[in-house]
Amino acid sequence: MRNAYFILAALAVAAVTFAVARSIDNAYVFFAGYVVLQYIVLATAWNILGGFCGYVNFGIAAFFALGAYTTVVLHKTMPFLPLPAMMLAGGVVSGLIGLGMGYLTLRLRGTFFSIATLAMAVVAQTMITNWNFVGGSRGAYIIRPADSPIFSGDYIQYLFVVMLALSVISVSLARAIQFSRLGFGFSAIRDDEGAAEASGVPTLKLKLIATALSGGLMGMAGAPLPYYVTYLDPASGFSLSYAVNTIAMPLIGGTATWLGPLIGAILLGTLQQVATVTISSALSLLLVGVLLVTFVIAAPKGIVGWFKK
């Protein structure tokens, strides 16, 4: 029941967020807000595997971009599909990739696992670059519909609402996992895999659940991207900045809980958007770097860690 209350509260916060955004008479609020929300989903998804289980995934861009490219394929073959259906498809594709990656690499630990995920991202990018159907290295153009299909407003408002809903789903899911039997199993794996196995935890199965969930959510976060950017090429879809930001946010917020990635994403994501508009877009990555270094040195347990003993 506590989960049900949390979801209701999260929906209320989401509704207020949308109402406030609507009250500001500027479409750019939705463009900027969409990016922050997208990072809430990415950071939360990354944390399910990276924070809860302790497996650091550098292949974020691959899961994210494969979700986006699933939309490109569906847009060309079945343009009548509504966006949530495309997101579901993107989630399934990336979730399956996550499952496969998990099965192939989870006998690797620590740095070796991380390098393998990075390699997987390179492989995925190479394959997309050489796949003519989705535009290859030229990229693909997607024409964004003018209006929202479910309420009166721009399509960007619709994208914002969809991403807002996905944020609520991801954060609620991460929170539910943290306090569940699954969450205890994940923590045991993070702390000592051998001892976890000796305590009856089916480590391989749990790790596969984590990689599939984490990858699937990242794919869903990437699925609306083609409609947001309207032009998608491999270099931007697989951009390393997605990976850097997504890892930096939970680290700054704190990786042990569902709250850390949320705080990190809102804080860092908003800061980047403000910096992009007011100073320069090149500054946003510098900001990430400086904050990351500061936090790793001064507060290794993140912002959430300040408030815990």
Binding site: D192, A195, S199
Partner: peptide, 25 residues
């Protein structure tokens, strides 16, 4: 089994350490 060198789950409290095998075994 118990391990030769204790291998507790370091980020969990004692109660949570015990909870893992209760839930999973």
């Amino acid at each position: 089994r118990s391990f030769q060198l204790p291998r507790p789950f370091t980020t969990l409290t004692l109660a949570e350490n015990i909870r893992v095998p209760i839930l999973y075994a």
